[in-house]
Design a protein around this nucleic acid. Structure first.
Lengths: 213, 213
DNA sequence: TATAAAATCCCCTTTTTCGTGGATTGTTTG
DNA sequence: CAAACAATCCACGAAAAAGGGGATTTTATA
């Protein structure tokens, strides 16, 4: 019997999972949380074999929550469930210890396969993701912390000089970071750098207030 | 009896809807399509009162599909179902004739309310969206077709000169468009323009191949 | 058919970025 | 302990964009 905890804020998706789990007598659902806080409360009593974890949660994201999960509940395996196939999220979650990464467009068969694989300690990746990771393996494009820091400020429209003042470094250093990022991500200039970075989830555009702007 | 057609490519979400619809004896489900093509085939036999339409479909998007729906099946009312709360999508779909816009993080009550409202010809917007639209009403920031065309090329890293060649116009015109957009969206420069434009969904970053880059 | 909005084109100056080349000092890490 | 990487700094010239004006011609549309 595989004990599952769902951490997901979309009731419709939860409903879908619940249905699937109910229909199988080797799966049991031990809790549902719509956000990280509720999840942490549930985990104590629940002690699931597998946590189905969404990335985009209100408040604390899956990226942050998984760190706590890994530390406090190392026996619960994390199966990420996300609409996002961007390499940044995939790599980040796998690095942080997720055992699987499932896209929300997966069908029932794939979901069942994912859950059972992860339960038996095999890594599971959605087909699309496995395919793409393999294809683009070799030199994973990654930005350093400092680069991402600079990138965010660039995206906010600051010039090298302004960023330099903010970070207490030379404008030339900022320029170097910018150039390095352009080279790394094979952008043509800053504009395309921003686009590529957003596309690949190097920084989040998540709208915490959910306001229309 | 309200006849519903679901156009949505996430099986989990479909499952959630199906459950909800099954549980009500005033709703009936007349079909499920995972993409626009299937939807068009189903519509003929189905003739639903309400179409639950996702925006991000593989192949043809909801943005395109709704035009066909409005033209060929004007009696079927469209209730958009999306994770995207960006003003661009909301406004675009409503302008194209959608009767409601429901966010996927809606609960059952909200979904039922949305469906019945739309059925009785009232516009329904998710709370968050209604709130934000009202709040930011007045001067809706909108970009012209040409501006968006230019914007996309800018985001791809082309210079004014290159864009000018591509569109057979003067680089000065391209520059004007760029400047106008920066002013309209209150960006500080091209980099922040791209970020703001992406955030607000002025153009899609949808990854049609679903590849990790 | 006015009138607004969109699309087009122009000038000038200043600021910023791009491209290409470096170099140095730490800090991980196999 | 090398080797790799991150973070810092630099120089120089060319190219591009920003800022702040204006102006004309199409197209919609009220």
């Amino acid at each position: 019997m595989i004990k599952l905890l769902i951490i997901e804020d979309h009731p419709l998706v939860v409903e879908g999972f619940k249905n699937l789990i109910d229909s199988r007598d080797d799966f049991s659902l031990c809790g549902i949380a719509g956000n990280a806080e509720d999840a942490l409360l549930l985990l104590k009593s629940c002690l699931p074999d597998i946590v189905l974890l969404d990335i985009m949660l209100p408040g604390m994201t899956g990226l942050e929550l998984i760190d706590i999960l890994q530390k406090d509940y190392p026996k619960s395996k994390v199966l990420v469930v996300s609409t996002y196939s961007q390499r940044y999220y995939v790599e980040a979650m796998l690095e942080k210890g997720a055992k699987g990464y499932l896209l929300k467009n997966a069908g029932n068969d794939e979901i069942i396969e994912a859950i059972t694989s992860v339960y038996y300690d095999q890594t599971y990746l959605s087909h699309e993701i496995a395919f793409s990771l393999r294809k683009n393996a070799g030199q994973p494009i990654s930005l350093s912390h400092r680069e991402i820091e600079v990138l965010k400020l660039v995206a906010d429209g600051l010039t090298n000089k302004e960023i330099a003042e903010k970070l207490f470094i030379s404008p030339l250093t900022v320029d170097s970071h910018r150039k390095n990022m352009i080279a790394k991500l094979e952008a043509r200039n800053t504009a395309s750098l921003i686009k590529i970075a957003v596309e690949n989830g190097y920084f989040s555009l998540r709208n915490d207030t959910n306001e229309l702007k």
